[in-house]
């Protein structure tokens, strides 16, 4: 047929497309991660990888398995709801290896983070102007951090 003869070059062009598409499909088969589409349009294995990221905060339940004494002290006081690492910082490495000693804390910095007076804080939250309140005396002189009310026992 003269049509196929005179349109032959068009078929050559089309053939290039078909070849390119076939190559694309083959490459795609090998390149797309295996778990892609397992749960949706994403790499399913990514969920597990993200879940396996390292912890830095052990969580108070872990702390309490050893430090039950502190838990008992805390339970009765105003700081019952304040978890260990909120003041002590991330201690997952200590939980995994208790020989790693956590750093000593400075109450002058710590207490004031929450309890510095500010009109922006909720009115029922205990807050002080540090200079007026203690005149520079360290907080733990009167307040035991694990049970801060004075009657429950300061160290002096």
């Amino acid at each position: 047929m003269s049509l196929t003869k005179d349109a032959g070059h068009l078929f050559r062009f089309a053939f290039l497309f078909v070849v390119a598409f076939a190559v694309f499909l083959v490459v795609r088969h090998f390149v797309v991660p295996k778990s892609f589409g397992e749960y949706g349009h994403y790499r399913g294995a990514a969920i597990g990888e993200i879940a396996a990221r390292p912890l830095h905060y052990a969580g108070h339940e872990t702390c309490e398995t050893c430090h039950a004494d502190i838990l008992q002290m805390k339970k009765a006081g105003k700081h019952a709801g304040v978890n260990c690492e909120a003041c002590h910082g991330p201690l997952a490495n200590h939980a995994g290896d208790p020989s790693i000693q956590p750093a000593k804390l400075d109450t002058a910095v710590l207490c004031i983070r929450c309890h510095a007076a500010s009109a922006a804080k909720p009115k029922n939250f205990p807050q002080v102007d540090a200079d007026q309140h203690s005149g520079g005396i360290a907080c733990e002189t009167c307040h035991q951090p694990h049970s801060p009310a004075i009657q429950s026992g300061g160290t002096k």
């Binding site: 003269s2 049509l3 003869k5 005179d6 349109a7 032959g8 070059h9 068009l10 050559r12 062009f13 290039l16």
Partner: peptide, 19 residues
């Protein structure tokens, strides 16, 4: 670039034009 086809007969060019 010719893709190995040197057919430039009037009929093929008419087809090219239409396409």
């Amino acid at each position: 670039m010719t893709l190995g086809s040197d057919n430039i007969s009037p009929r093929s060019l008419v087809i090219d034009h239409k396409v």
